[in-house]
Amino acid sequence: MKTAAHCMLVALLRLLSLLPYSLVARMGSGLGAGLYVIRSRRKHIVLTNLRLCFPAMTDLEHERIACAHFQHVVRSYLERGFQWFGSPRWVSRMVHLESKIELDDPDAPPTIFMGFHFVGIEVGCMLYSSRLPVAALYTRMSNARLCALAKRQRGRFGAKMIERSSSARDAVRLLRAGIPVMLAADMDHGTTGSVFAPLFGVPACTLTSVSRLAKLSGARVVPFVTEVLPEYRGYRLTIFEPLEGYPSGDDSLDACTMNAFLERQISRFPEQYYWVHRRFKTRPAGTPAVY
């Protein structure tokens, strides 16, 4: 990203952070609905994912969820202004925390917080980092300026940002020192370090990094999900009980456990999962491409 464009992006996000939240959210929803009308590769990807995962739904139902998803995705981009430049007080006021574990327990075992790519994931992570020490894994973006901006703003409340490609040693060290680590492992990064596990009955190339990191560190794995609340009431961050029997010692079984949990959460609000990603781009040998 060139300097002028980078400065314009930062200025836009700062400006958005000064506007009423409901206004920005409505702007994002309206823009997303408008973009959905236009034929695009992203629209094709979203509909393909929905047809694969929900074959019993009608085309009209797929279209309804896909349009709502476009609205949520574009809205989430505009709301990044609040998340990256809003005050800690704004984040605390807008994100409602529900935890099934004691977060302040001084005797808690090493903890991996396992997130998923719902549209609200970023603000949920920021709420946690504004209250308690945490480290977070990130994937380097191709645009160096944007990557540096995202890393700086995501860590502005004190979260230690660890690049995914060199994360294992640093993550284990932090976990053993009592610092929880947040990560998301529900994207398709190819077959290296992955296994195929069903997601709504579709073979999904699934990272085994969570179970491997848990084995190395002796950490419990605690799922969390952030959802966007209706009527512009903000977000809800839900921290669940640790996964039972995880890691099991079997990477394939652990991947199935993770995807089964994800299925249950997607079924609650399918329009908020990140369907714009090519979740099934890597296919088992001999299986045709879907995109």
Rank of each mutant, 00 (worst) to 15 (best):
A25M: 10
F261G: 05
V123W: 05
V91P: 12
P109M: 15
A185R: 08
E102L: 06
E163N: 02
S267H: 07
R39M: 08
F269V: 11
K2P: 02
R164Q: 05
G158I: 13
R51D: 01
Y128H: 12
S40E: 07
A214Y: 00
D254F: 02
A136V: 15
A168E: 07
V181R: 00
M1H: 07
G249E: 04
E231G: 11
K2W: 05
F85N: 10
G245D: 09
A255Q: 05
N143V: 15
N143F: 11
G28Q: 11
F118E: 02
H96A: 10
G32I: 01
L174A: 04
A219E: 07
V221G: 04
A289H: 06
S166T: 13
V222Q: 04
F224C: 13
A4E: 14
A33Q: 12
D186R: 10
A11P: 04
F224Q: 12
Y232V: 03
R89F: 08
S194T: 09
D251R: 01
L31W: 08
V10T: 09
I266E: 02
F269P: 05
L16H: 06
M182V: 14
L18N: 10
P180K: 01
R75A: 14
E271A: 14
P223R: 15
L16P: 01
R140G: 08
R236H: 10
A108E: 07
P288G: 06
P284K: 11
T208H: 03
R93E: 13
A144M: 11
I239M: 07
A168W: 02
T3W: 11
V74S: 05
Y77R: 03
F280H: 06
A171C: 06
R156T: 03
L35P: 05
V10Q: 08
G234C: 10
P270W: 03
P270K: 11
A56D: 09
